[in-house]
Design a protein around this nucleic acid. Structure first.
Lengths: 136, 136
DNA sequence: CTTGATGCAAAGAGTTTGCACATAG
DNA sequence: CTATGTGCAAACTCTTTGCATCAAG
């Protein structure tokens, strides 16, 4: 996982300006072991930056996504963001329905899935949802 | 899979009125072997019913979903609907990225997934995307 | 200084809701 | 007949965009 400093460096290296807001965003994601909705991010940031606007949050989330720092996933409840996994290996996730925290699953179901010859596989999605120890 | 008549009967049995639009919707989904977006449904229906409104399409999709005739899935590109799978067995899908057609996968990755004891699994999602024979 | 970041307002997509009129049963 | 379905308009949520101002480098 990336640290706050590594995220900031990475943004800086791409020629992005390091504003207080971006530093705070970097810290938020470095400290959060799971998914955050744009709304959750906004509510967290709002505490520090009164007068914050939603569009800036979105813009920064997009910037960090394009930079490869964040990854976006679509859930039933909407879009969420988390630090991009830097695992050396392809993997999947256990996701806590309460706190959003994720745990890696090393097993990839594609190994065991029989696909008809005439079907050309491009990608797959495997996610397990439930409650982590802390959330019951 | 349900036939047009079975869908109509099912709606009728629930006290829903069988309008021409609902008959056409039933036929559309009975004949479609994959996912349809609300927009695609609207565009199909519009051909027959000029002056059709989007809200009626949405209302009928919701009604059919609540009835258990349709199932809704959230993709990156948005929400889509298909006939609810009536397979006797839990299963997953191969989904064609071009035509939306689906093929069942009998293998369920949960059988092979090791979950930490302290994680209480509630549900899972496994979907394989690619191109079917017809779509290359 | 100069370019990129921010806030504000407004615009868009997608979806839902209230109401009056039309129509299935 | 009577209650449900439909179209219309408007509201709502989530997200993006244009523009003037502000501040990082």
């Amino acid at each position: 996982m990336l640290t706050t400093e590594e995220i900031v460096e990475r943004m800086s290296a791409q020629g992005l300006r390091i504003t207080d807001q971006r530093k705070t965003l970097a810290k938020l994601f470095a400290d959060t072991p799971g998914y955050l909705s744009p709304k959750a991010v906004y509510e967290y940031m709002e505490k520090t930056y009164s007068g914050l606007s939603f569009d800036t949050v979105y813009r920064n989330l997009r910037v960090m996504e394009e930079l490869g720092v964040l990854e976006q996933v679509v859930f039933e409840e909407g879009v969420k963001f988390k630090l991009h996994c830097r695992e050396n290996h392809h993997h999947h996730h256990l996701i806590c329905l309460n706190c959003g925290k994720t745990y890696p699953i090393t097993f990839c179901p594609m190994e065991k899935t029989e696909v008809p010859e005439n079907f050309n596989v491009v990608k797959h999605k495997f996610e397990v949802f439930g409650y982590c120890e802390a959330c019951g």
